[in-house]
Structure formats: C-alpha cells, structure tokens
Design a protein around this nucleic acid. Structure first.
Length: 552
DNA sequence: GCCGTTTTCGGCCCGACTGTTTTCAGTCG
C-alpha cells in the first residue's frame, strides 16, 4: 500500500511543477487542495484508496484519482515523471524555501541555471542573486539566512521524532540475546525540546555478539556510535554489571554543566541507585528531566521535583474538532478522552477570525453548545463550551465581552500579525490577558520548533500579567511547540502562575501529545497543584467561576 | 483539475505584506 504521506507529497510536487511551468493557477490549486483533503482525511484515506472509492471524496476528481491510483500501483508517478522530463528533480527543493515561489524560481532557473539548493547558496555567496531583476540585496540575505538556519536545524529532530526513533531502536536492542537491560539517556532522558543525539545505556552479558549486531562507526571506551538511517547520531554505552549500568546512566543523564555543578567526581559516586549517587554528592534526589544547569539557580520554592504524570490529568482542555479544523468529530474526541482517563473536557475550536481554520461565528458556537449539552447528558461526562479566540492586532478578542461571558472557557491565542514590534506585541498580549473573560493564554510565544522563531515579546511582562490577572499559561504539548518554553516555567512559578497542559489536539491521536507537555512541565518542576487540568471536576467548576468576579 | 448545475461550461479567496519598484509583482496564509 502506497504511503499516504508520499501521495500528499506527490500532489504538492506536481502542483509546484505545474505552477513553475505557468499552468492554469486553478489547476495548480486543484492538486494542492487534493493534497490538503487527503491530509485531513487521515487514516480514512487509506480505506478509500484500498477500496478504490476515491471518487466519493470531494476534491478528488477523475484527474487526481488517476494520478493517485497510478502511483499506488507502480510506486512512481507517470505524471510527475513527464513533468520532470525537461527539468531536474532537484528543482523541487527550491520550492521549500520561504519567500521563493514559482515565478522567482523560474527566473533563477532561466537566468542563472540554478536548479538546487547547493547552487542557490553558491550564487548568493557570489552576490549574483542580488543583481537579478526582481531580486535585491535583502532577498539574497534572507535566502542565505534561511539556508544557514536549515543547516543548523538539520542537526536536530523534534522530541516526538526522537521518541519514535528511540522506540524503534529499543525493539531492535531487545531482540539481541546478550541484552539484559536498556535505558534511554542523555538529552532524551532529560526531555530536551529538540534532540541532537539518541543515547542509550545497555547492560549485556556478552560483548562480541552484541557489537557484531551493528555496523560500528566509532568506539571510544565502552561507547559505540552505530550506523543507522536516521538523521541524527545514535550511540550506546555498554556496561556489563548492574552497578556500572546505574552509574553510567547517572553520568550520561545530567548535562555536563549540571554534573560539574554537582561537584561530580566518578570516584565519589557511592551506592547502587540514582538516589544513592545524589546522597554521596550530598544532594537531594533530582528527577532526570531537571538535571540541567538551570537547576542550581532555582529558588527553593520551585526546586522541588515534579509530581506530575498522565494519571494526574483530569481535564482535556483546548482541543479542536470537525467544527473548525480538527480531523475528528467531537464524539470521537470525547470517547478517546474518556478512554485515556480524563474526567471532563472543554472543546476549544477556532474563533471567527480564523478563516484559515473554519473558525466559528456566534451562531455556530451556539449550535455547538446545544450539541455539547446533549452529548454531556447522554454520556455523563461534562463537556464545557470553550473557544480558542484569536487575539486581534489591537489586543482585543474577536467576540464582544457580552458574548464571551456565556462561554465557559476562553483560550486567547495569537494566530496572525506575528511581525509586530516587541513593544506592540507585548501590549497586545497583555491586553488580551487583562480581558476579564480570558481563562488561558494559548501557546504564549508562538514558536514552532525547528521552523519558526517565537514572535518578539517581553515574556516576563506577559507572565507578570498572567499572574496578576489569574490567567493560566499554556504548556502547549504539541511537539512542534512545547510552548511555554521550560526555561520560563521557573519564572512563572515564582510569580505564582497556574498552568494548563494541553495537546491542542486536532485528532484523537494528537491527544497523546499530552505526554510531551507533561514531560516538559516536569522539567519545569511543575506540581500537580499548579495545573488547572489536574483540578477535579468540582474544583475546575470553581476555577471557571472566578471570571464573574473579575468582570466586576 | 474540480465542482455544480438553472448539468458539459464557467467560476474557482483574496487581503496583507515585503521588497522591489517608482506603482506593483510575488508570496504567504
């Protein structure tokens, strides 16, 4: 069966090439739209494809069907091949560069013969791009900056990607007879938001059959670097008895800065377990997630180990459904939430300014509200009416306060106009936080890990405003976001802020992102008592009522 | 290329932004 992602990619590639060749823009759009439709369908697409029922999908007409079936059958695309007959495939790379569209790429190709990222970089450095008509020094600089950023990003993967890689390697390790015990270590065990290396410690009883299992690229002491197809290095520290396994795990978990500030010395390390080791260093036990340099500058009040875990979560807040841009219906989202042990929920679809996400106007919110009531009653499961309201450029939310007062749970988030000055953006967000109906500030800095920087804003001032107005701060658990950054969590906790750990789920699968948010919250030392979705159903009801007072 | 139909053709989102221009084209969301 052809991979869904490959088919989506294929349609995007065809769209890019058609556009490059100056085809009818509506035709181009039909391919792009088709790709989006498939992405939204998720797993369902696989069924349509298998049963050859793609004709039933709106947006996939005869043309796209034949392209998709052809690819699914042959594993390559006749259409793409013919488009690439007179241009090299590497031209497709250029479409991934922000700011370069079909017209500019055409100029680059026709005037300078540029057909790959490598050639583009070289031409920038030779100052040839700036001289082209329609380009300029600024554009050339922007391209170079982006290419450099890409090189840096290519050394990392997101936490969920690292998690997936590690799981695959773990299952391979377990298949080796000599292996007795395995643990993740390093950045992954510390839960860094982006990962540059996957590290393991293993306990084995025979070295030879273990080593022979891999193609070893490098070996230093008892640490091997193995060859894989993954984008980042994978290394394994080998130990042969339980005590050295535990010691190795301790030594490879904490960051170098953390270990050196512990006054770490291998000889001083006494005992058999992690807590013994801390004792021998005359320190309290520190959970792996918190073993960072930052730990030592924390005030006593926020230094305690986190007590969070998925089993402490009671409310599924801030998630989307088919009402706006979610992939799954309210019913399936709730049933998944129940399955995972959540006790109540607040659906927070996009608001009316979010055209891009099919946001809800007042009328549709009321329509959803009726459905929620019916569904809550039938299932004996409280579902609150929430909304993820766009923070407009001037800091107001996109519904009147009169309307907002009837919505149970309001998440305020920035989704547009990212390029304001730091002062304007800070003012904008603080105004939204000061709105008496705001319950939660969604993904507070707007960053997308390994792709987009956060917008410019004074995070301290924003946190201060959240504390002063009793507005919770989101730990957005989508691995692309993990926003608020854990480094800010300590500051917010010192200020007495409350947090909300949310998957921002757009499908039932996404709900599991909650685990990454919990890990990041643990890294920030967050206690269960500081998280609004750890409140019991009754306590949460009381939390929501505080707005009535604020409005006065 | 897709859709819908008053059904085999005509319409398909468009405003904001950016960097290049010197009044606007190209790109993005």
């Amino acid at each position: 069966m052809a991979d869904r992602k490959e088919i989506i990619n294929l349609l995007y590639n065809i769209a890019d090439l058609l556009e490059f060749k100056g085809e009818n823009p509506f035709k181009v759009n039909a391919f792009r739209n088709g790709a989006n439709v498939i992405r939204k369908l998720g797993d369902q697409f696989d069924i349509y494809l298998k049963e050859k029922r793609l004709g039933e999908v709106k947006g996939i007409g005869k043309g796209l069907q034949s392209v998709i079936y052809d690819f699914a059958e042959k594993g390559e695309s006749t259409e793409l091949k013919s488009l690439l007959a007179d241009i090299p495939e590497t031209i497709l790379e250029l479409f991934t560069i922000h700011g370069l569209g079909p017209k500019k790429i055409k100029v680059l190709y026709d005037e300078l013969g540029i057909k790959s990222i490598g050639e583009l970089e070289y031409a920038c450095k030779e100052n040839r791009i700036a001289l082209l008509k329609g380009f300029g020094k600024t554009t050339q600089e922007k391209i170079l900056t982006e290419l450099e950023k890409r090189k840096y990003f290519s050394n990392y993967v997101l936490l969920n990607q690292a998690d997936k890689i590690a799981t695959e390697i773990e299952s391979e390790l377990f298949s080796i007879k000599a292996v007795k015990q395995i643990s993740r270590t390093g950045e992954l065990r510390r839960i860094r938001e982006i990962i540059s290396e996957i590290e393991f410690v293993v306990l084995i009883d025979k070295e030879k059959p273990f080593i022979e299992h891999f193609e070893v690229l490098d070996k230093q002491d008892n640490r091997i670097l193995i060859k894989t197809n993954y984008q980042i290095p994978v290394s394994i520290s080998i130990t042969k008895d339980k005590e050295s396994f535990e010691k190795k795990l301790f030594v490879t978990t904490g960051s170098n800065e953390f270990l050196s500030k512990c006054g770490f010395d291998f000889v001083k390390l006494k005992g058999k377990t992690d807590s013994d080791f801390f004792k021998s260093l005359k320190m309290d036990y520190v959970i792996p997630e918190m073993r960072e340099e930052e730990y030592f500058s924390l005030k006593e009040k926020v230094r305690k180990n986190s007590d969070l875990g998925l089993n402490k979560m009671q409310g599924l807040l801030h998630f989307h459904t088919t009402f706006s841009d979610g992939r799954d219906t309210l019913e399936s989202m709730i049933s998944k939430a129940k399955e995972l042990g959540f006790k109540y929920a607040a659906v927070c679809d996009h608001s009316k300014s979010a055209f891009y996400a099919n946001g809800l106007n007042e009328e549709r919110i009321l329509e959803q509200k009726n459905l929620l009531k019916k569904y809550s009653d039938e299932n004996h499961f409280t579902i609150y009416q929430g909304i993820e309201s766009d923070i407009l450029t001037d800091g107001s939310l996109d519904y009147s306060n009169d309307f907002l007062k009837n919505i149970d749970f309001v998440v305020a988030s920035v989704h547009s106009q990212f390029n304001l000055s730091e002062a304007d953006m800070t003012k904008r967000i603080i105004k939204a936080v000061e709105n008496p109906y705001t319950d939660l500030l969604g993904h507070p800095t707007g960053r997308l890990l390994l792709s987009r920087d956060s917008y410019k804003c004074d995070v301290k001032k924003i946190i201060d405003a959240c504390a002063a107005n009793n507005v919770a701060i989101e730990i957005n658990s989508n691995p692309r976001r993990l926003d608020l950054d854990w480094r800010w969590i300590y500051y917010a906790r010192n200020k007495g802020c409350m947090f909300s750990i949310n998957a921002d789920a757009h499908s039932t699968e996404d709900i599991l992102y909650t685990n990454y948010g919990i890990s990041i919250a643990r890294k920030g030392g967050i206690q269960k008592s500081e998280v609004i979705n750890c409140l019991s159903a009754d306590e949460f009801k009381i939390f929501l009522k505080r707005k009535a007072k604020r409005a006065l």
